[in-house]
Amino acid sequence: MGDEAQEPYRHRTPRPIYVMIADELATEIAKAPVDSPIASENDIQQRWGVARATARHAIAALRDRGLVYTVPGRGSFVSPRT
């Protein structure tokens, strides 16, 4: 087999890893109370073994979807549902 077989699965998928993380977190957020904290960048890094930039992109994707809001210096929290 070529080098491709040696790469982790996440690198062979056409979807960016931050989108997959955001999707999984979105499922968790759907069950969480409004204004409850979500995983921090650090938590995401540890849980998925990704770089801080990837964790930031995942949280930004959730913010773009309107699922979370971020308070500088405090973290990100579940947005009120519309």
Rank of each mutant, 00 (worst) to 15 (best):
M1Q: 05
M1H: 04
G2I: 04
E4K: 14
E4A: 11
E4S: 08
E4Q: 13
E4I: 15
A5K: 13
A5P: 02
Q6E: 12
E7N: 13
P8K: 14
Y9K: 10
Y9E: 09
Y9V: 07
Y9P: 04
Y9W: 05
R10P: 00
R10Y: 10
T13P: 01
T13Q: 11
T13G: 06
T13C: 07
P14V: 07
R15L: 10
P16H: 11
P16F: 03
I17R: 13
I17Q: 14
Y18K: 07
Y18L: 03
Y18W: 09
V19Y: 05
V19M: 08
V19H: 10
A22H: 00
A22N: 01
D23V: 00
E24C: 00
L25F: 04
L25E: 09
A26S: 12
A26N: 04
A26E: 05
T27V: 05
T27W: 02
I29W: 01
I29G: 03
K31D: 01
K31A: 10
K31N: 06
P33G: 06
P33R: 15
V34M: 09
V34N: 09
D35M: 09
S36P: 00
S36T: 09
P37W: 00
P37A: 15
I38H: 07
I38A: 06
A39I: 02
S40H: 10
S40I: 05
N42Y: 06
N42I: 02
N42G: 15
Q45N: 08
Q45I: 08
Q45Y: 04
R47V: 06
R47W: 07
W48E: 01
G49L: 04
G49N: 13
G49S: 04
V50L: 09
V50Q: 10
A51E: 14
A51R: 13
A51P: 02
R52I: 05
R52T: 07
A53R: 13
A53H: 10
T54I: 13
T54R: 11
T54L: 08
T54W: 07
A55I: 04
R56V: 07
R56M: 08
R56P: 00
R56Q: 14
R56F: 01
H57K: 15
I59E: 08
I59L: 15
A60M: 04
A61T: 06
L62Q: 09
R63Q: 11
R63K: 09
D64W: 02
D64S: 11
D64H: 10
R65G: 04
G66F: 11
G66H: 11
G66V: 14
G66R: 09
L67Y: 08
V68N: 03
Y69I: 04
Y69M: 03
T70R: 12
T70L: 01
T70A: 06
T70K: 07
T70F: 01
T70Y: 01
V71H: 05
V71I: 15
P72A: 05
P72M: 02
P72R: 10
P72Y: 06
G73M: 03
G73S: 05
R74V: 04
R74Q: 12
R74L: 10
R74H: 08
R74N: 07
G75I: 08
G75P: 05
G75T: 09
S76V: 01
S76P: 02
F77T: 11
F77M: 11
V78C: 01
S79I: 01
S79L: 03
S79E: 06
P80N: 11
R81D: 06
T82Y: 07
T82M: 03
